[in-house]
Design a protein around this nucleic acid. Structure first.
Length: 948
RNA sequence: GCGCGGUUAGCUCAGUGGUAGAGCAUUACCUUGACACGGUAGGGGUCGCAGGUUCGAACCCUGCACCGCGCACCA
């Protein structure tokens, strides 16, 4: 570093080094370089939406991937981090449609399919690079030469090939079924793209007249065992008429207890002898689509009415004969729920559709694709939007006098994840996939060939695979991979190319975006060719993604991997947490609580953002993001910068050789702490505990290296011994060069800048740190030989701790007696045994004292503040008046603390079985602790007595 | 309903059987020759509740409470 600025300025180094890495090809993977000595490490990016913008979830996810990739390079592996983007069918199409409407007041139909798709492509060309550039700003070390897009021609061919193969195997089929229909995007969705949300709505009760087939009033009225109830009748009065064995129902039939009017239980007969049934529904607007009502055949209230009919109230204008629908028996009906009478709407409810199929009921679709009602819904409803129609339907029932109750009700409603509108169950012709390789995919995770981190996701994954349903893969969109199927009359052709001959029409639908993304790990590597890339880098090593796409993406990739590569696609899956705001809310555009990562980068630096994110991201926990974390990251980088600056200020070349004979106790101590940090950080990264790794680094660098070692080193640097200084510089260079390497995966920019600035690169082989810190070798823990040569044994730690304890106590004395940080103070130490004068100088400096006198025969004046330490008694002789009472108060407080500690230990030791059963080491430790406290007790007591 | 996670200092979280920790916030002092994006010292916790196992439990077991999430066709 020729110019050493006082503070780290990230903006001036980030682009410089990123460009350097790219130009030097540092991110480029080469299959030819893979050998036994240089194994492959690979990871494929979860492709972000091509027109998306970077958000905090991306930051978390991609920082983790970058850490893994950079660490692997430093471990000497050939690394491929394969990037790319996803065409994101619905999201992208909707964006382009919106822009089209806003800018040109056009719909896609105005343009037509071809022209519209051209617009989407140009939109992609314009916006597609944004998120890629944002990833670069974050420092991501992806191999950009291999960037892929799920709509690349080669990729499209993969998708089509897979479709054709699965079709030929009979796993893909076309069928008319109930699907999740999104009225906003007007396409089918898979079950995984439907999100259940609790909704506040109403439960409506309305009555219908039961009649004979010919429309005449139902004969016989209520069943003999279940006398008609008048609606006014209160609960609890009818308990005698049915035995509990034949009627397990509570008199009120469900949850209505204590809410005033009792719900009618079973059929009612009015004064004219007509029989009425009550139906409960949350969707009265679908009444026109009802083609039956169902009761449970075992329900004694209704069993006798089975086979008769009811008069459907809507559409009201139809002649009575056209409104008759049968009362059918079906086990599906839960007679404890609602009134026990279920309206069956086969066209608009999945369960009802199945009932309808069992009873061969007509399917009456009363809605349009956009969620409005069609003419079959009846005059007043036709044309209305479905929720508007609900209100009107209720009014129509009320006008007919059949609405009995309208009660607030909370239930779960499926929402389209993308469009955030309630989905509509809808009967339509779609393509489905019967999942391949299910058993193998289950087994590989269950048996541990593939590992999930955290492990608990294996259970979630297993549960999904166990209850797996066929996947609806067709979408009624234009943007996407078109279904490779052609029709001509009754003929169907499925193939990679259009069939020969006239009159063939290609299926208009496209495939679910996930039907292309599930091929990502191998389709990006040149499949179906057996490329070198595939040979060397597949299966990939790690996958990093959010648990929210475990089904839609992860599970499906595993199945595709087995089906098409006959091998798992990755060995480990790391599931990140979800990034939330500091109040724990999910980040969303509507809440506006998601900070723009690029703004954060420009304010604090990319390294700071990475640091802050990773520090607060423990394994498998959601992350509560707070901008303060990024600020902390900036502060941290600045501290690192200045620690290196301090080294630079000592001057001299990089010192490679450490002379054991010249090592101080502090030098030995920091080398031991470095060794521990290397082991902790390496272990933490190996087990994906990123927050732990950051914590270890933080502790080592800040709390140990800066707070103690750098301060202690000043004793030598301010001294005159040149050899000692040079050796101290050597230790610092050793520590910093290791430290920078350990920080590099987390903080790529600042470490590269410092690596070169400090001159550490000059010392290294070209491809192992000489060119860039990226390829410098990951630090190894110290060897036993090194430890022995440098004299790193247990005594080092003990002595250092004793020193630090003395310093802390001395500083405490200063504070207590108002010799604040600004003032120096003079200390006297009555040492236990010999204390090296150099050590004394270090202590003086750490105490920030004017002097520290060593005097074995020191006799303090009465009232002199004293600290008892393992290295001796430390006195703070005060000029002028001595405040005896202040010292007494201080020591008395100290005494109380000591006594409390002694009591705690004594209590344990007093337990007879403690001594018998406890391991000897623990027993010794307790005894030692007790002895130590007793020494302090005696010293403190004596000191108090000496005060008189 | 089933399953999963969480509950430790004011806040965010570490801590898998042996002296309760970190960062932030807070209080006091300090612009000392790396750094005020800094330093020093301090205050602050019956580890959600109740049982159990153990010489010993924040940690293991059982039950409960509350918060969050996922799965499930309850009209």
């Amino acid at each position: 570093m020729t110019e050493i600025s006082k503070a780290y300025e990230p903006q001036s180094v980030q682009d410089k080094w990123y460009d350097f890495w790219v130009k030097q090809g540092c991110f480029t993977a080469d299959a030819a370089r893979v050998t036994d000595e240089r194994p492959a490490y690979s990871i494929v990016i979860p492709p972000p939406n091509v027109t998306g913008m970077l958000h905090m979830g991306h930051v978390l996810n991609n920082t983790i991937q970058d850490i893994l990739a950079r660490k692997a390079r430093m471990d000497g592996k050939e690394v491929l981090w394969l990037p790319g983007t996803d065409h994101a069918g619905i999201a992208t199409q909707v964006q382009v449609e919106k822009a089209l409407k806003k800018e040109e007041r056009l719909t896609k139909y105005d343009l037509g399919r071809e022209n519209f798709l051209e617009r989407v492509w140009s939109w992609k060309e314009k916006h597609g690079g944004i998120i890629i550039n944002q990833l670069k700003k974050l420092g991501c070390s992806c191999d950009w030469t291999r960037e892929r897009f799920t709509m690349d021609p080669e990729y499209s061919r993969c998708v089509q090939k897979v479709f054709v193969e699965l079709y030929k195997k009979g796993l893909i089929y076309r069928g008319k079924r109930m699907v999740n229909w999104c009225p906003a995007s007007q396409t089918a969705l898979s079950d995984e793209e439907v999100e259940m949300k609790s909704q506040k709505g109403f439960m409506y009760h309305f009555k219908v007249e039961a009649v004979e087939v010919d429309g005449s009033p139902a004969k016989g009225g209520p069943h003999p065992l279940t006398p008609a109830l008048s609606p006014e009748r209160g609960e609890g009065e009818d308990s005698a008429q049915t035995s509990p064995a034949t009627n397990p129902l509570s008199p009120t039939g469900g949850e209505g207890q204590g809410e005033g009017a009792a719900r009618p239980n079973g059929p009612m007969t009015d004064s004219e002898g007509r029989v009425w049934l009550t139906i409960a529904t949350t969707r009265p607007e679908t009444i026109p689509g009802d083609t039956a009502v169902a009761v449970n055949p075992k329900d004694p209230r209704y069993a006798h009415l089975i086979g008769q009919h009811i008069v459907r109230p809507l559409p009201a204008e139809l002649p009575r004969a056209q409104k008759l629908i049968p009362i059918i028996a079906d086990d599906h009906v839960d007679f404890e729920f609602g009134t026990g009478v279920l309206k069956v709407t086969p066209a608009h409810d999945k369960a009802d559709f199945e009932i309808g199929a069992r009873h061969k009921l007509p399917v009456v679709d009363i809605m349009n694709a956009d969620g409005t009602m069609n003419t079959l819904a009846g005059g007043p409803l036709a044309g209305l939007e479905r929720f508007q129609a609900r209100k009107v339907a209720v009014e129509l029932l009320r006008e007919q006098g059949v609405l009995i109750e309208e009660k607030p009700y909370e239930n779960n409603v499926g929402f389209s994840q993308r469009a955030d509108v309630p989905i509509e169950p809808r009967l339509s012709e779609q393509w489905f996939l019967k999942y391949p390789a299910v058993a193998q995919s289950k087994a590989s995770v269950a048996e541990g060939q593939m590992k999930f981190y955290p492990d608990r996701w294996t259970k979630v994954y297993d549960h999904w695979l166990t209850n797996i349903q066929d996947w609806c893969i067709s979408r009624q969109l234009w943007w996407g991979h078109r279904v490779p199927v052609w029709y001509r009359g009754g003929e169907v052709h499925c193939g990679l190319e259009a069939p020969q001959g006239e009159g063939w029409q290609q299926d208009p639908d496209v495939l679910d975006t996930w039907f292309s993304s599930w091929l990502w790990p191998f389709a990006t590597m040149g499949w179906p060719e057996k490329t070198d890339t595939l040979r060397k880098f597949y299966p990939t090593t790690d996958l990093v993604t959010g648990p929210d796409i475990i089904f839609v993406w992860v599970a499906r990739m595993i199945m595709a991997g087995y089906e098409f590569m006959d091998e798992l696609p990755f060995k480990n899956v790391y599931f990140t947490g979800i990034i939330r705001d500091k109040q724990g809310r999910k980040m969303s555009k509507t809440l506006g609580n998601s900070p723009d990562p690029l703004v954060l980068i420009s304010q604090y630096g990319a390294d700071a953002l990475r640091f802050g994110t990773m520090r607060s991201a423990p394994l498998g926990q959601d992350v509560l993001f707070d901008e303060k974390d990024v600020e902390l990251g900036r502060n941290f980088c600045n501290k690192l910068w200045n620690a290196c600056r301090f080294r630079q200020m000592q001057g001299g070349e990089v010192q490679g050789e450490i002379t054991a004979a010249l090592l101080s106790s502090d030098d030995r101590w920091i080398l031991l702490r470095l060794d521990l940090a290397i082991r902790e950080v390496s272990d933490a990264l190996a087990s994906y505990n990123f927050a732990t790794a950051v914590q270890s680094l933080y502790r080592f660098f800040w709390s140990e290296y800066c707070d103690w070692y750098v301060e202690a080193s000043k004793a030598a640097f301010f001294g005159e011994d040149a050899a000692l200084k040079a050796n101290k510089v050597a230790v610092i260079d050793f520590a910093l060069s290791h430290l920078l390497r350990m920080f590099h995966p987390l903080l790529p920019f600042i470490t590269e800048e410092l690596w070169h600035g400090m001159g550490y690169s000059a010392d290294m082989p070209e491809e192992q740190g000489g060119r860039t810190i990226m390829f410098a070798r990951w630090p190894k823990p110290l060897s036993d030989d090194e430890k022995e040569a440098w004299g790193l044994d247990d005594t080092v730690e003990t002595f250092a701790n004793a020193k630090f304890e003395l310093v802390t106590q001395g500083r405490n004395l200063k504070t207590q007696f108002n010799i604040g940080a600004g003032k120096k103070g003079k200390f006297t130490l009555k040492p236990v045994g010999q204390l090296d004068s150099r050590e004394a100088e270090v202590l003086r400096l750490l105490l920030s004292a004017e002097s520290l006198e060593l005097d074995s025969n020191y006799a303090p004046r009465k009232g002199t503040p004293t600290a008892f330490t393992k290295l001796g008694e430390l006195y703070l002789p005060l000029d002028g008046l001595v405040d005896v009472e202040a010292e007494r108060a201080r020591l008395t407080k100290e005494l109380a603390k000591i006594q409390a500690e002694i009591e705690k230990v004594e209590q344990k030791l007093a337990n007879p079985s403690f001594a018998q059963k406890v391991p000897p080491a623990v027993l010794d430790e307790h005894k030692q602790r007790l002895a130590d406290w007793h020494v302090k007790l005696a010293q403190t007591k004596a000191a108090i007595e000496a005060l008189g």
